[in-house]
Every structure is written in structure tokens, then in C-alpha cells.
């Protein structure tokens, strides 16, 4: 089973700012889960109502894809340093 990312590490350095933060995503997931559970009857009704027009099927597929994309984000790392201007941006999803 694939788990969603637990942390996002963000670092931005330039001549004016030195900023680094660890964002605890694991605190967000229980809230999202509770919200999804609370809204699931409404979501289900909306999907079923729009199923004949094709939008319901699309909404269901989007929801599923969104989940897999969020889980697949684990391991993503972007590290960019600009030449001459002393600017760096670092994003890491753990």
C-alpha cells in the first residue's frame, strides 16, 4: 500500500531571505479523511446524479487520480540554484 507524503521540506535562500520549513503533512491527512467521510454521502449523490451525463464518471476518475498523484509525490525533490544571484529553492517531499 502506498502512503501519502508525511513531510514537505521547503528552503528558499536569497540575498534578503533565508527561509526553511518542514511542513508536517501527516497532521493534515486525518483532517482531510474526516472531511471526506463527512462529505462522502454528498459526493456520492452528486456523482450518481451526474453519471448519465458523463460528468459523474469524470468526477469519480478525478478523485481516484488525485489520490494516486498525492501518494506518488513521495520522493519528489526539486533543487534549483540560480547563477550569480545567489538564489536557491529546495523542495523535498518525504
Amino acid at each position: 500500500m502506498k502512503w501519502p507524503p508525511m513531510w514537505i521540506r521547503l528552503k528558499i535562500n536569497n540575498e534578503r531571505t533565508r527561509f526553511g520549513i518542514w511542513l508536517p503533512l501527516f497532521l493534515l491527512w486525518p483532517v482531510v479523511l474526516v472531511l471526506l467521510l463527512a462529505l462522502s454521502p454528498l459526493i456520492l449523490i452528486a456523482i450518481l446524479a451526474f453519471w448519465p451525463s458523463g460528468w459523474g464518471r469524470l468526477a469519480w476518475a478525478v478523485l481516484r487520480s488525485l489520490g494516486s498523484i498525492i501518494c506518488a509525490l513521495r520522493g519528489l525533490r526539486v533543487d534549483v540554484a540560480s547563477a550569480g544571484r545567489n538564489e536557491t529553492v529546495y523542495i523535498s517531499v518525504v
Binding site: 520522493g75 519528489l76 525533490r77 533543487d79 534549483v80 540554484a81 540560480s82 547563477a83
Partner: peptide, 9 residues
Amino acid sequence: ADRVNVRVP
């Protein structure tokens, strides 16, 4: 030259 290091799962 800029430095870029990207790792995409």
C-alpha cells in the same frame, strides 16, 4: 550557468 537537480518518482 544555473544548477538544477530534480528527482521525479
